[in-house]
Structures are given as structure tokens and as C-alpha cells.
Design a protein around this nucleic acid. Structure first.
Length: 520
RNA sequence: GCCCGCAUCGUCUAGAGGCCUAGGACGCUGGGUUCUCAGCCCAGUAACCGGGGUUCGAAUCCCCGUGCGGGUACCA
């Protein structure tokens, strides 16, 4: 039975790198018919754990990463919050102490610092002298009487080697003598991550610890704890971390300013920001950017695209397969094919996956995803969605692949929903196409033919246009841009005949008249 | 400093001694389709970190450098 876990801290946001780690855990569990669980690392004793956790759980659900045990779903080993498992940690510490594999240490931070500096000066690796180690109650009392406070340290082996079998890295060797006597319990009685993590993994019956590479160096002390407690060791797999755009540094939310200097990252960011603004979303930079999953949901990306992209960050099936259904991901995932080197986050490539998956959607599916954006932007009344859906359906069909994320519908099609006297004219295009000397007269003549048209469908419009061009002795390029700007206000958009047909004769005439008015 | 890890086009990667004058994808550039913009199609651009071995033969194995990253916390 395979059991994997992901252990988020309740920080209030779901980080894209964390999702990749969680995804691999999830995939591995699903691949082997096992369970994937969520454990909450809230040893920091934050106040609003629930509030800070909600966006994270929401993000996982949105992405389709479900958990078999953990917050909100419970499970046989509940609770899954570290803050609620203090007694278990205390019991582990007691057991370690009783077995002589940990000790109370009464050294002051200054004394420790002095030893550390001495080692540094002599250019030898630092190893605590254990001078203030208390192995008996009497010793402990003596130190305490001196006014010292104690922590609990691991009594690590000082000779021999440890070989860690790692499912992605092979065998990794450590010398015990290089390992410090790490603190597992603070003076105030609270326990540290490594102890808690090992105890949890055992209690929750985790079989495979799949986590980021930064934990590889910490593994010896965890193994020591596990072995000291008599736990069987889980399998380990250390994944390369997700790196910054165009760099090998670990991706972190803190260095947003730096990422914004990356052209592609900035582009994706701005594009999302524009949509967020159009729907009136508050966008604090540290809570809304391409490093955070919520960004993608709010802007209208598809979870399939994110997941497919992330799966290929540090994993590949072969030399050609790029697209995977959820089923195919599960069926093909293996830790053996995880890459060893860090993989940098490339927003442009994510964009390409988004483009692909958007194209796979039917018109109805797109409408479903885009309508909420129109409502949020105030272009469609919530009470009016039946009519809006009908109109939107035509627009979506006409817009084709131009709409990359659901939120793009705003920029591409807002003019359909705005009043005939309220859609804005793009200043530059207006200048370029409608300020020409012959433009007004020509537009007027086009308007006459439009007005005379009996059926207002794409074919008729196209036929009429050709007759018009014949009569005017001009090429289409000489007039079509002017018409587009007059009717839509924009230099780009769906095919012009589509735009005209969707708007209908009456609106088209009104809009041309408005443009004519502005030109005069 | 010490310990550990990693190292193929700008990016994601294929490659487990000959299939490699290194393949695919994204990006970028050029061309085609076209009313704009997308899309689509075609073409092009671009990499084995360096040096030593081993071998008939090395991107692939070994060693040494170098670079990058992680750890070395009463952080997770």
C-alpha cells in the first residue's frame, strides 16, 4: 500500500512550486492505487490557520488534486494538524531521552557560539563538545540551579556512514560525524519540524516521502530520529526544485521584483493584472502574481493546462509526448523518470499549454467559463444571463482561438456588450483609419449599402462588400480597417463580417453614424 | 569554510558507449494562408561547462577542476 503526503504551511497562498511537489505525490499515490494525504505544518502556532489554509485547499481542489485524508475530509489518523499533535511529539521526545539517543542540553547560545567560532578558526568542522549535556536528572538539576534553561538535542552518532537510498538520486552517502546534535525540542517545550515530521510520517503510515531537494541534507537527522524511535524507514525521493524564470535559483514568492524583470514573466503578469482590473479584483502584488496559483484561476486559465505544464517540469515520458490527460498522467508517472536538475519556471511555455487546452474546448464550454467574467466586469447583468449566453456563444465562435484565457473575452469582446454610444474608440486606430480625407465619404457610401441589405448574415455581408469594392475601385485593405474601428472601436478582433452580423443591422448603422459624428 | 546535490539549444527535455553530422517542444526569426489579430502550415536559429583518463569508439563511464543550487538554525 502506497501512502504519500504533502505538508503545506498555512501561509494564505498556494505556491506554484509547492503544487508541483504535491502533484508528484498525488500522481505517485494514484498510480499505485494508494492514498494521498494533506498534513498541515502549523507548528508556528499562527492565529488564523483556517483562514490561511482555505486558499490552499481551494487551489488544490481547483486543480483537481484531491486528498484522501487531511483537513476537511478527516481520516483514520486525524487530526492532521501538527498543532494538534503535541502530545505525540512529546512522547517521542521522552522516548528518545529514555533511550539515551537524545539529551537535555543546557549550553547558552553564547557558549555554543564560542565553540562554533573556535572550530571555524581552527578550520575544522564544528561539533558540539556536549559540555552542558545532562544525561541524568542530577546533572539536569545542577545546570538548572545555575539558571540555565535546557533544550533537547539528538545524540547523533560520531562515526560511521549513512547511505540513503533515494528513488530519484540513487544512493546518497553521509558521514555521521558531520551531523550536528540537532535540537528537537526548544526550551519552551515546543518541538521542531524534523521531529514532528518524522513522527507524523510514521503515525500516518507514509510509505514514500516525496519532497523537494532542499530536504535531502536534512534527511540523515530524520533517519536518525526514525531509527531511534524504532520506526521502519519510508522510501525517499527528493525532487529537484522549481527554479526562477531563466535561472537556477529556487523559485520564491519573495523575489517577485526580480522576476518582473524577466520579460516573459512580466508579460504574463501584466496580462493577468489587466484582466483582474477589469473585473475589479484587488491585486496586491504579493498575493496576485504568476507564482501563485490563485492568479491563474482568477484570470481564467484552465487547470488542465497548469497541471500538464507542471507535470513536465522535472519529468518526461519520452522524447515527444507533450500532452497528457489526467488518466495518462496517472498511468505513466514514475519517479524513475524524474529529472535531477532544477527546472526553471517558464511562463511562456505554460501559456502555450493554456493555448492548446483552450483550443480543445467546445464553444459551450468556453461560454461557461467566460460568462462569469462578463458578469464580474459589469458587462452582463446577473439576471440577464440567458440572453447573454446566446450572444456570447456567437461571439466565442467568431473569436475562435484569439481568446487564450477566459478573461480575454473582456478585451476582445467588450464592445458587443457596451451601448452603441459608449464603446471606446482606440485613439491611435481612429486617427490612422478614420481621419483620412476620403474616409468619411467612403464610410457613408458603405453605410448606405449596409442599410439596404435585406439579409444580414456573413455571406450577404461578404457579397455586399465585394460589390462595394468593385464600385469604389479599391482593395479591401483600403476600407475594412476603417469599418472595423468605427463599429468595434478596436484595431483587432474577430472577423469583420462576423462582428457586423452579430451586432445586427440596426446597431451597425448606429455605430457608423456615431463614428461619422466623431470624425466631423 | 565544511557537507550534499546538480550540470545537453535562451527555456522544458530526449539521450542509460556506436542508432547523435545530438531528436522533440516552447520561444525567437523568416515565409505561406488572411480584412486585423489570433490560429494553422512550412522553413530557419540554437546545446553536450572545461581538462584529463577508460575504450576501437563517450553527451553517455571514471577522476580533477569550474559553475550553480541546497544544507550547515531553539526556520519549514
Amino acid at each position: 500500500m502506497v501512502r504519500t503526503r504533502f505538508a503545506p504551511s498555512p501561509t494564505g497562498y498556494l505556491h506554484i512550486g509547492g503544487v508541483r511537489t504535491a502533484l508528484f505525490n498525488w500522481l505517485f499515490a494514484r498510480r499505485h492505487g494508494g492514498q494521498f494525504l494533506l498534513r498541515i505544518d502549523d507548528t508556528d502556532q499562527q492565529r488564523n490557520v483556517e483562514a490561511a489554509l482555505a486558499p490552499i485547499l481551494h487551489g488544490f481542489r481547483w486543480l483537481g488534486i484531491d486528498w484522501d485524508e487531511g483537513p476537511e475530509v478527516g481520516g483514520p489518523y486525524a487530526p492532521y494538524y501538527q498543532s494538534q499533535r503535541l502530545p505525540q511529539y512529546q512522547a517521542a521526545v521522552d522516548k528518545l531521552l529514555a533511550a539515551g539517543l537524545a539529551y537535555r542540553d543546557f549550553a547558552s547560545p553564547e557558549e555554543l557560539q564560542t565553540e562554533r567560532q573556535a572550530a571555524e578558526q581552527e578550520k575544522r568542522p564544528f561539533l558540539y563538545s556536549r559540555r552542558w549535556m545532562a544525561e541524568s536528572e542530577a546533572e539536569a538539576k545542577k545546570f538548572a540551579a545555575e539558571g540555565r534553561s535546557g533544550v533537547v538535542r539528538l545524540k547523533m552518532p560520531r562515526e560511521g556512514k549513512l547511505v540513503i537510498p533515494d528513488l530519484v538520486r540513487g544512493e546518497v552517502e553521509f558521514e555521521w560525524a558531520r551531523e550536528q546534535d540537532h535540537v528537537v525540542q526548544r526550551a519552551d517545550g515546543s518541538c521542531l519540524y524534523h521531529l514532528a515530521s518524522v513522527v507524523d510520517d510514521f503515525d500516518f503510515q507514509i510509505t514514500h516521502v516525496i519532497r523537494a531537494e532542499e530536504h535531502l541534507s536534512n534527511t540523515p537527522r530524520q533517519i536518525f530520529i526514525a531509527q531511534s524511535l524504532g520506526y521502519p524507514l519510508p522510501e525517499y525521493a527528493h525532487l529537484p526544485y522549481v527554479a526562477e524564470p531563466g535561472s537556477k535559483n529556487k523559485l520564491s514568492k519573495r523575489k517577485l521584483d526580480k522576476y518582473l524583470k524577466n520579460r516573459d514573466f512580466a508579460l504574463v503578469n501584466e496580462h493577468g493584472l489587466a484582466i483582474a482590473q477589469a473585473i475589479g479584483l484587488a491585486t496586491a502584488a504579493d498575493a496576485f502574481n504568476p507564482v501563485i496559483v490563485d492568479f491563474y484561476e482568477q484570470v481564467g486559465y484552465l487547470p488542465e493546462a497548469i497541471i500538464n505544464y507542471l507535470m513536465l517540469l522535472g519529468w518526461s515520458l519520452d522524447d515527444k509526448t507533450e500532452f497528457f490527460t489526467r488518466r495518462q498522467m496517472i498511468d505513466n508517472f514514475s519517479l524513475e523518470r524524474v529529472t535531477k536538475a532544477p527546472a526553471s519556471f517558464d511562463p511562456k511555455k505554460l501559456w502555450a499549454f493554456q493555448d492548446h487546452y483552450m483550443q480543445q474546448l467546445s464553444t459551450e464550454e468556453k461560454v461557461e467559463r467566460m460568462l462569469p467574467f462578463l458578469v464580474k466586469a459589469g458587462l452582463v447583468q446577473e439576471t440577464d444571463t440567458v440572453a447573454a449566453r446566446q450572444l456570447l456563444s456567437k461571439i466565442v465562435a467568431a473569436a475562435g482561438d484569439r481568446v487564450k484565457v477566459a478573461g480575454d473575452i473582456l478585451a476582445y469582446a467588450d464592445f458587443f456588450f457596451l451601448a452603441d454610444d459608449a464603446y471606446p474608440f482606440d485613439a491611435e486606430s481612429f486617427e490612422k483609419h478614420l481621419k483620412k480625407p476620403e474616409a468619411a465619404e467612403r464610410l457613408r457610401r458603405f453605410r448606405e449599402r449596409l442599410a439596404a441589405l435585406s439579409s444580414f448574415d456573413v455571406q450577404s455581408l461578404e457579397r455586399m462588400m465585394h460589390e462595394f469594392l468593385e464600385a469604389e475601385q479599391i482593395k479591401i485593405g483600403a476600407v475594412i480597417h476603417a469599418i472595423r474601428v468605427a463599429v468595434t472601436g478596436k484595431p483587432v478582433g474577430p472577423g469583420l463580417y462576423d462582428c457586423l452580423a452579430i451586432l445586427g443591422k440596426e446597431k451597425c448603422l448606429k455605430r457608423i453614424d456615431r463614428a461619422l459624428g466623431q470624425m466631423a
